[in-house]
């Protein structure tokens, strides 16, 4: 069982307390009506599936209840870092 660091509880907690919530840093367009069909389809369905690090959302559903972001290695399952929702991906400029 993996431990995942909850950036709100600021502690490592068992993975069973968490739920994955898909890719991180995908913004819902503020005015969806102005998006093209292709843009909207991309927003809905197109996701990176890298071998290596991925930014994804998790929710500490059976803990503090918060959604947060994590950088995880899809090969090793290693969580490099977790950070609060709204914070930029580490290593990038906001």
């Amino acid at each position: 069982m993996l431990l995942i660091h909850c950036p709100y509880c600021d502690s490592n907690r068992p993975e069973t307390e968490f739920r994955n919530a898909g890719a991180a840093h995908i913004l819902r367009p503020s005015d969806p009506a102005t998006t093209s069909d292709a843009e909207w389809a991309e927003f809905l369905y197109l996701r990176e599936n890298p071998k290596g690090t991925i930014a994804e959302r998790w929710r500490h559903v059976h803990g503090c209840g918060r959604f947060f972001n994590a950088i995880r290695d899809t090969v090793s399952d290693d969580f490099a870092v977790t950070y609060r929702a709204g914070e930029p991906r580490p290593g990038t400029t906001p």
């Binding site: 969806p32 009506a33 909207w40 389809a41 809905l44």
Partner: peptide
């Protein structure tokens, strides 16, 4: 309504 969850989706061809 200008927007609600699914509104844009409903406009897909």
């Amino acid at each position: 309504k200008t927007d609600f969850i699914g509104k844009r989706g409903l406009m897909r061809p």
